[in-house]
Design a protein around this nucleic acid. Sequence first.
DNA 1: CCAATAGTGTCTATGAGACAATATAAC
DNA 2: GTTATATTGTCTCATAGACACTATTGG
Lengths: 251, 251
Amino acid sequence: MDEASFLAGYDPRAYPSVAVTVDVVALTIRDGKLCVLLVERGEQPFAGHRALPGGFVREETLDEAALRELAEETGLTSGEAAGELDRVHFEQLRTYGNPGRDPRMRIVSVAYLAFAPHLPEPTAGSDAAHAYWVPVEEAKDLAFDHDQILADGLERARDKLEYTPLATAFVGTDFTISELRQVYAAVWGEELHAGNFHRKVLSVPGFVESTGETAARGGERGGPKAKLYRAGDARLLHPALLRPTREDRVR
Amino acid sequence: MDEASFLAGYDPRAYPSVAVTVDVVALTIRDGKLCVLLVERGEQPFAGHRALPGGFVREETLDEAALRELAEETGLTSGEAAGELDRVHFEQLRTYGNPGRDPRMRIVSVAYLAFAPHLPEPTAGSDAAHAYWVPVEEAKDLAFDHDQILADGLERARDKLEYTPLATAFVGTDFTISELRQVYAAVWGEELHAGNFHRKVLSVPGFVESTGETAARGGERGGPKAKLYRAGDARLLHPALLRPTREDRVR
DNA sequence: CCAATAGTGTCTATGAGACAATATAAC
DNA sequence: GTTATATTGTCTCATAGACACTATTGG
């Protein structure tokens, strides 16, 4: 029986109540580490545990709900700070709806993935005082099934770095090739050969384009001033930047 | 405010009622064409239109709901025919929840993608009498946002053929390289060079393994008897079988 | 000066794809 | 026999990655 004929004959409110929420895996890079935005839970269940930011879906699209939740948790809801959210890349990750994933009632949660260049630390005193960035390797024992959601989000992020220009969502509008390489290193958790990476990025059509400008200064410990680039118009990278040591992932 | 603290303070039943359904994009190959399973709608809205099979989620996981719906629509619910479903590859596609996607109420639908070797035509007289396989290029003007869901499913399927052994889900347990090539041709909608495809498939570790057997007979119009293979243990293809003419998809 | 980094050059191994060649089986 | 198909061979070009080298800048 299809959805509609079912609907025509039944009142859905007669069914056990189901709630729909969004949860957001928001990733950024701070101090060379890949970090995820977490909130502190003060109440049962999972009091004292950390969780992904999220909340109920209102009269809005799922995408809007996810963006709203991120804005609320980061405190970037107004003023010039709200503009920061414009550069955040958003995409739906996956939906989690196992019975029992929330001990109180049936909750179906649509998880989103967000990639941010460098959002500020949520400031104390705001609504978001209980939210903060945590290096992903320290984000363990999250509430509900959020460990799984985070793991799925990280896997997606690592995969998409290979064949999309997603990495540019983690840096400013103007960036050096080294900065881009550090994004890959942080997300993949391994160093990349600077020379080969440099040549490869420039060889992918539409990945980056030169601004003609040069960085204000060299590296912290010396080195020439790097050229600046901005994101190109490619939506897919071809050829892709395959990550090393993918043999493990094959079987 | 996160999901849980919100829950603690609010009765979700006070919110506008939201229903959760699953819709299934079930694909198979019949007569060399990629086909999708559709159901005929007899009632408003969208009476006379076709739709993807789907229905409400019950006290079960989302995956179970999708599998159940497919079983009901294909009539493969009992006996030896039910075993056919064991070889169906299932994966979650995406969730659709825009307000207004169903004109009657807020419905959030979790879409699934199913790849089947060769399911029988749903038999008349069963519950599934109103369901049938349709070549994807003829599947237009579907109910609700199902055109979009189908398009997303096809895009996913085409992508996954590149880097996963998904194509083996469309053929029997034993198959020839030519049969595998015809799967790629049907899903990608373009012919592939037989010689290069052959060598490439065999060069990917874990994609296929020889059975040692040979097909009972040659091609319909002549040719040698092909060797038989079965799916290997690879979960990802490396190197990938990149599809031709991907330049269009880059920008 | 010294150390670190940006950027380029070179070499090798591998894969993609065009094309050709050979062998086998249906009709 | 004729034709289509399975399978293998060969050649060329592009790319990945290892490694080396030069130039530039901060300290």
